[in-house]
Amino acid sequence: MTPDEVIDTIKAQFGDAVKASEVKGVEARMDIHRERNYEILTTLKGMGLDYLNCLSAVDRIASGELEVVYNLSSLSLPTKALVRVRVPREDPIIRSVASLWGTADWHEREAFDMMGIRFDGHPDLRRILLSEDWVGYPLRKDYQDERLVPYEPV
């Protein structure tokens, strides 16, 4: 299955839920609406992209949003997929995919720990790397800590 076919299939099935898409090499890239993330990822998994390489969170502070990025690939196909979902900063809730992939469990806990994204349906959503009583989400761009040394070019 080529990246173009991946995008065509998802678009045919979910229509407006795909906000933007492009093909970069063997990678199908999609920006999708957060309401349909679980269904779209389930479909992608069913299409053979069953290996969740990475789940990251990005702070898009300029547009007041947080972004969750799923990197999918397969152990039998050369095709890869990159799925981006944006959630508003004041209401950062998205459906968890921990029931689809066991690996998403710890990745989502890390995204919660560092960015404060709440994963609805996660079995055990608590901080993973920081201590339980930590205040704030360090990887957000507006995080303040006097111990952080900003980079100043010489």
């Binding site: 560092m114 993973i128 790397l129 990887l139 952080l148």
Partner: peptide, 17 residues
């Protein structure tokens, strides 16, 4: 339980060239 060696490597990276 992990995180005893956490130093926020990623935040450090975002503040360096």
């Amino acid at each position: 339980y992990i995180g005893y060696l956490h130093r926020c490597h990623e935040k450090i990276g975002e503040n360096r060239i």
